[in-house]
Design a protein around this nucleic acid. Structure first.
Length: 271
DNA sequence: ATTCTCACCTGCGGGC
DNA sequence: TGCCCGCAGGTGAGAA
């Protein structure tokens, strides 16, 4: 479910409401990708200061320490004054005096991990290799172009890896490549400067549009206040195999790269 | 070093 | 109706 837009929309939907809250306790469901790394009771009394996003991770900062949250493939957060009893797919509840934050994640690829301070080894392990934030000033065309030039991988993999730029997942990689007119199988280092510039702009544009539309709701994504996203309605290629291209009417093609599918227009996107 | 493949887990839709 | 298969928004670990 969650790429950068969905994670950012989730963050915005509860960060202001949870900031300033005092933790009353925490409840655990089934195991997630990694152990929490602390006793749930040790969170009691901590003060939530703010919620930050880094790539597809959310950082729930306390007056001392932070929780690293990841939504995996099927995760979503809820934040409400009252929540029903934990169901079979609810795996983490953080109870505060301003409401209850819950991670719902059927596939359990998500994670909630405690970091006692900003130098905790777990932060280096999970965040240390992450690339540029595409919606920040640091995402410069010069650095992006240099990163692509130095790569010997195909462009789709470079975008998904998060080593150069973070937050771009399977939906938005396909969409950005369509807008830039680049086929997903193109070698990153072989893309000329004009199309590199187009791709750089397309990544920013598609992510910003998706955030403004509340993200993509393919199956059951919703933000922490329960609202769904609508970007999927304006997708040009993702999930549209066989359907006519919005630009040239040629049938959209799907191909498998590794374990992931890519969608592209064989006419509008050149190798 | 960099790149590639796999594994993790559950649910759903399609074909038989 | 029921079963089996393939597929799904991510990413660290280990192999090559």
């Amino acid at each position: 479910m969650p790429e950068l837009p969905e994670v950012e929309v989730t963050r915005r939907s509860f960060s202001a409401r949870i900031a300033g809250a005092t933790v009353l306790g925490a409840s655990l469901g089934k195991p997630l990708r990694w152990p929490l790394g602390c006793q749930p009771a040790s969170l009691e009394g901590r003060l939530v200061t703010d919620v930050e996003r880094r790539g597809k991770y959310l950082l729930l900062h306390f007056d001392r320490g932070l929780l690293l949250l990841h939504l995996g493939m099927s995760g979503s957060l809820s934040f409400a004054l009252e929540l029903p009893a934990m169901g079979p797919h609810d795996h983490f509840d953080l109870h505060t005096d301003r409401g209850h934050l819950r991670l719902h994640d059927p596939r359990r690829f998500g994670a909630v991990v405690w970091a006692p301070d900003n130098d905790a080894p777990v932060l280096h392990k999970l965040l240390g290799h992450l690339g540029m934030e595409p919606l920040s000033q640091e995402f410069s065309l010069v650095r992006f172009a240099a990163g692509l030039k130095a790569s010997r991988s195909i462009i789709k993999q470079v975008l998904l890896s998060g080593r150069l730029v973070v937050g771009v997942g399977n939906i938005y990689a396909s969409e950005a490549l369509f807008r830039a007119g680049i086929r997903p199988t193109t070698l990153a280092g072989r893309i000329g400067p004009v199309r590199v510039a187009r791709l750089h702009a397309a990544i920013v544009a598609v992510l910003e549009q998706a955030v403004s539309l509340g993200g993509s709701t393919l199956r059951d994504f919703q933000s922490a206040d329960g609202s769904a996203g609508h970007f999927q309605l304006s997708a040009n290629v993702y999930g549209r195999a066989g359907a006519p291209c919005h630009t040239c009417s040629a049938p959209i093609k799907m191909l498998r790269q590794g374990q992931r599918s890519s969608f592209y227009c064989p006419v509008c996107q050149r190798p």
